[in-house]
Design a protein around this nucleic acid. Structure first.
Length: 560
RNA sequence: CGGGGCGUAGCGCAGUCCGGCUAGCGCACCUGCUUUGGGAGCAGGGAGUCGGAGGUUCAAAUCCUCUCGCCCCGACCA
């Protein structure tokens, strides 16, 4: 492909409303343009990247026996009503009516439609297992699209669905997908982790996410280097670091106007981990006092799994229910439900004295108060692994794929049944598995860039090589460029020839920005000795080779 | 949906507080000459509903009201 014939609108300046590195670089390097919030136009370069990612996806999906099909993006409401999601999902679903007034929606995922198909086409255990996948547009009216292609309202997803006769079959397909996903992300040149995740509204018992480490990510995971424990903080278990058990006698301390743990900690010159934070929340079953150690954060979702839906209490409610202002609550002498983080099982602490301007020191769990013990804190750096007690790491990540065991969640309401060997009717056991190609591309840029631009992993780069003839008025340069272009293309490489009549500096800058892994630089002086340069975008290493040796050299590079 | 920021030429911005001549600057674009290994120089040129609507005023990019859009933080994220 010739640069002059391709729409590659590079930008010298950074567009004002981009913040994430991948977003900035995709705009600057001429890969994408924004149509509206969360809606992007894919220009030729990004389409090439997308196609390469799709090719890898298809190869690996086909390799585990999955069959590609294509479902509509526009769905009738009825199917979604049958599973209840039409009602459960809020504004995130694009809804519309057709000309006859029939309710329709734009597909945000395809469990319903895939199951609809299974209902009709799978009758017997002999038809099972099946794995169907598609690479299809999803539409979600995101509350907050952000970071370029990382969170958009319209995006492609490779989604596959497995249909099995029993849990063992599902387990097999789940494992096959996990392995395929490992191969896919490795082939795409990404650093990633597979972590336990919260199945959330997808339903089902087990799910994992594939996470690419990046500061631009929206998720946070907990990792243990020594035992391999890896989980999304949404559900990650951990133990706060151990603290010394103090031998304080119980007693009240005057702490005028000192309300927060930080204030009291400074005032008493005691580290926050010797405090108990008491937080009042209102659940559907009444008020609950949640207790966490002073250096820990309450994890709303974990608490929610124990006490159900809840909200923080208002200031007045705290006074009404506990009889004291919020800054001076302690765990003692209350007749409401108490839920404490497990680490508070032992130790001696400071907390509010349930008395204005007073705190109490020497509080002993079990003696001074009794609470249900659960892990209700947010895992943080420095905590100890719940499995092996080694220090854990916290990492910010981009979710690039997920796998769910759905079980019967969709097959039962949609009546996707099959007849087993005994002629008994049974629900099909399902799984669903997604990968976002745009997130792969974004994560690849987030993980591979420098001040000059993108550094694509070879496997998903828009081109394998870019040829830079520096002086377009020199006949020898032109001839060499054309020959190399023809020969490299004939060898099956994707080659971009920068045939623009631009100055050398412009070509260098654009080449580095665009990020094609290998550059072949044809300069007039070198050419007089029959030499061109091969530059590695990543290492910036330049090797001078005879023109005739370029092809051989490129084959070696491409194989790496 | 809550909080914050921004909307002026294709891009990046100044001007807005304190209303006043023909709305500026850099880059990009077009023409010509020179230049040619890391975003060239000189000369000339084209390009604007100042996001939109209404209002105040002799006069509005600037003040007031409403509204639309985009970004960031949070909530949400099937």
């Amino acid at each position: 492909m010739r640069f002059s014939k391709m729409l590659i609108p590079t930008l010298r300046q950074t567009p004002a409303d981009a913040e994430a590195i991948s977003h900035i670089l995709m705009l600057r390097a001429g890969y994408i343009r924004q149509l509206a919030a969360g809606l992007y136009i894919y220009l030729p370069l990004s389409l090439r990247v997308t196609r390469r990612i799709h090719k890898i996806l298809r190869e690996e999906m086909n390799a585990i026996g999955a069959q590609e099909i294509a479902l509509p993006a526009l769905h009738p409401a009825e199917v979604w009503q049958e599973t209840g999601r039409w009602y459960e999902i809020g504004d995130e679903m694009f809804r519309l009516k057709d000309r006859t007034g029939r309710d329709m929606c734009l597909g945000m995922t395809h469990e319903e439609i895939m199951t609809w198909l299974a209902v009709r086409e799978i009758r017997s255990y002999r038809d099972l297992p099946q794995v169907w996948y598609q690479i299809q547009t999803k539409l979600r009216d995101e509350a907050r699209p952000k970071s370029g292609l990382l969170r958009t309202r319209e995006f492609l997803m490779k989604d596959s669905y497995s249909f099995d006769a029993d849990e063992e079959g599902l387990e097999r397909n789940y494992q096959l997908h996990a392995e395929a996903y490992h191969r896919i992300f490795s082939r795409c040149g990404l650093k990633f982790h597979m972590v336990q995740s919260d199945p959330g509204m997808m339903g089902g018992a087990t799910s994992h996410e594939f996470m690419a480490p990046s500061p631009a990510g929206e998720d946070v995971v907990v990792l243990c280097d020594s035992c391999g424990y890896a989980a999304n903080v949404e559900l990650a278990l951990s133990n706060p670091k151990k603290i010394e058990i103090m031998d304080w006698e119980f007693g009240e301390v005057h702490t005028p106007e000192k309300r927060t743990v930080q204030e009291v900690s400074n005032f008493l010159k005691l580290k926050p981990e010797y405090f108990i934070k008491s937080l009042l929340v209102i659940s559907d079953d009444g008020p609950v006092l949640a207790l966490v150690r002073g250096d820990q954060e309450l994890h709303e979702k974990k608490l929610g799994r124990i006490i159900g839906k809840h909200r923080p209490a208002l200031k007045e409610e705290v006074k009404d229910i506990l009889g004291v202002e919020a800054g001076f609550i302690g765990p003692m002498n209350h007749d409401i439900r108490l839920v404490a983080d497990s680490c508070l099982q032992e130790g001696v602490y400071v907390s509010g004295a349930n008395k204005q301007h007073y705190h109490a020191r020497g509080i002993k769990p079990g003696r001074d108060f009794t609470a249900e013990l659960h892990d209700i804190t947010l895992a943080k750096e420095g905590d100890l692994c719940a499995k092996c007690d080694s220090p854990i790491k916290i990492e910010r990540v981009i979710e690039i794929g997920n796998i769910f065991k759905l079980g019967k969640k969709y097959s039962v309401p949609l009546k996707a049944f099959y007849l087993d060997e005994k002629g008994e009717e049974k629900p099909i056991i399902m799984g669903s598995y997604g990968i976002g190609p745009a997130r792969i591309a974004s994560a690849a840029i987030e993980q591979n860039n420098d001040r000059d631009g993108i550094i694509w992993p070879r496997s998903i780069a828009p081109f394998d090589v870019e040829i830079l003839p520096l002086n377009m008025t020199d006949a020898k340069t032109l001839e060499t460029a054309e020959n190399l272009y023809r020969d490299l293309t004939a060898k099956g490489l994707d080659v971009l020839l920068d045939d623009r009549d631009e100055r050398a500096g412009v070509k260098f800058k654009d080449a580095d920005l665009i990020g094609i892994p290998t550059q072949v630089i044809i300069g007039e002086k070198n050419l007089r000795e029959g030499i061109v340069e091969i530059k590695d975008r990543k290492t910036k290493e330049i090797v001078k080779v005879k023109v005739a040796e370029v092809i051989e050299r490129m084959k070696v590079e491409a194989a790496q």
